[in-house]
Nucleic acid binder design. Structure first.
Lengths: 299, 299
DNA sequence: AGATTCGATAGGCAACGCTTATGGAACTGT
DNA sequence: ACAGTTCCATAAGCGTTGCCTATCGAATCT
């Protein structure tokens, strides 16, 4: 029994699929199959039941699973604790797409100046994916928008920012004195795909204000939303941090009067796992940076 | 980082010596050195401080030690738990030399009849060695004589047996009506080496009875003691289970009158470690067998 | 039924762990 | 003080084994 076999085993359990487990381990599928087979030979019992295309844990596999998790995790932690000099190493950051381009580059850049030898891996993922990876230990820190419902991760709210209304420059409301959410009911909205929490935030805000918005378009990127708005295709609400990045004479941004829509940005990390000094330094760096962020309403 | 490296690491820590660690791992010394080096490369720090011939743990090594112990142990337990079918496997038994030849063959034989597929490894070791190996998990069950001072092992007393006086057939006391311990004071004793607890038992018994025995010879084996006694070289006290095995017309065995010397046989196992069904079966087998042992005075 | 997915198998290659032989430094003993 | 011993590191060759690509065959999907 060797650690790499247990690592492979865990990935197969995770994916219920040899092929994808192999990908995830960065080895070919036969290599992984062989490793599992050797492990099964050594234990003299199958770890998985291969019925057709279905892969599920056998009794022996179920017995091994918690032990393997513990072993692999301990090994990771041991290495992390020993190699942790606070200066060199790797930090894996995930951020949701509506946050990543507006916050992460600045954070990464300024952090790199402090600790230039740290390798930073940044990846953009929607909330669910990012949290999953954080739980699995594939990612150290996640930047996202609240709410998140998770008990096994540390969630630290960082700032609250307004969502501004964006209108084509020639929109009837563009010059209005005050715009209230109720005034928007006649106008169709352009939103992000459902996978993005921002769409949910916006629809939630509307619902709370008894407004039933029409949705006329969905896209993957905020910039597309904005350009669709500019083209007169609809209106939208977008985070202020994005507004500052996407100025254009073809559209105008307005704060709503009355109850303003906001979203809360938070930082997530796995406090059950070993946290390197680098990770702690980054968490603190995010805190102090976002405390002074221009769009920070409140904590 | 792989399990075999951690296993090697632990052996080096245990022996503070690469060469002996390598022996203990059944690999050549360079192979072990190389494995440790690779581990050190991966962790980017030395695990040992090699100052001259001295090998001691470095800071990083000290950090790794508890984790490595835990990891390797968990892995062993996982394998043991999974492969444990209650019928096949291996059981490692240690017994002290003054018990081994008289109890173990019978126990092993009868146990093998019950569970013929179990491979039994028997080794003879003095108390300290045996307990050390039991603690280290190199041995599953130890048969020995009390007292033992250990907190981290399970000690189960099994039987108490008398030590009989052995005299050359022509000894002045051979025909005495009663022999008391005090009567022995003039006669020199032949004893086992100090490493054997039996010598201590005998000397302790003498001391408790205010008798100061002379020691005239020391040997490694009970049979040598007996033959020396037969040759008129001295007298001795030997366990009854041995007496029954070594009858000879050249010597006589006598029970002492008054306070009889005894020793207590016990069984030791490591209850902090995973115990296989085979091990539990063996423990129970020993219990029921020795309950009916002819030399069993009391529990 | 054809297409697709997915795990197992086969064969070749490269890496790596193991071995023996040897080197060199630090103690040990006379 | 000097030979002997102990002990870890290094070197070089070998064999295992883990990994790869290619392919097969079975199960599922369309």
């Amino acid at each position: 029994m060797e650690l790499f076999q247990l690592r492979y085993f865990l990935k197969v359990v995770e994916h219920s699929n040899f092929t994808r487990a192999a990908e995830s381990c960065s080895v070919s599928q036969p290599a992984l199959s062989q490793a599992i087979q050797k492990l099964e030979d050594e234990l003299r019992q199958p770890l998985f039941e291969r019925s057709g295309r279905q892969v599920s844990l056998s009794d022996a596999g179920r017995l091994l699973l918690p032990k393997a998790q513990q072993i692999v995790r301990l090994a990771e932690e041991a290495r992390a604790a020993i190699t942790d000099d606070g200066k060199t190493g790797c930090l894996r950051i995930a951020a949701i797409p509506t946050v990543a381009p507006y916050l992460v580059p600045e954070l990464v850049q300024s952090f790199s100046q402090k600790l230039p030898e740290v390798r930073l891996d940044v990846q953009e993922e929607v909330t669910d994916q990012a949290l999953k990876r954080c739980r699995a230990g594939d990612v150290d820190v996640v930047l996202l928008a609240l709410p998140v419902t998770t008990t096994d991760l540390d969630v630290e709210p960082l700032m609250e920012e307004e969502l501004s209304l964006v209108l084509p420059v020639d929109h009837p409301l563009a010059q209005a004195d005050q715009i209230r959410i109720a005034d928007l009911e006649p106008y169709p909205f352009v939103l992000l795909d459902e996978a993005h929490c921002l769409s949910g935030d916006i629809l939630g805000f509307c619902k709370r204000n008894r407004v039933q918005p029409l949705t006329t378009g969905r896209s993957n990127q905020l910039i597309t939303v904005l350009e669709l708005v500019s083209a007169g295709f609809g209106i939208s609400l977008i985070p202020n941090m994005a507004r500052d990045f996407h100025q254009s004479p073809r559209r105008v941004y307005r704060s709503l009067a009355g109850d303003r829509p906001t979203r809360r940005i938070a930082m997530c990390s796995n406090s059950y796992r070993f946290q390197s000094r680098i990770q702690k330094a980054f968490l603190e760096h995010v805190r102090v940076t976002l405390l002074n962020h221009p769009n920070r309403n409140a904590k």
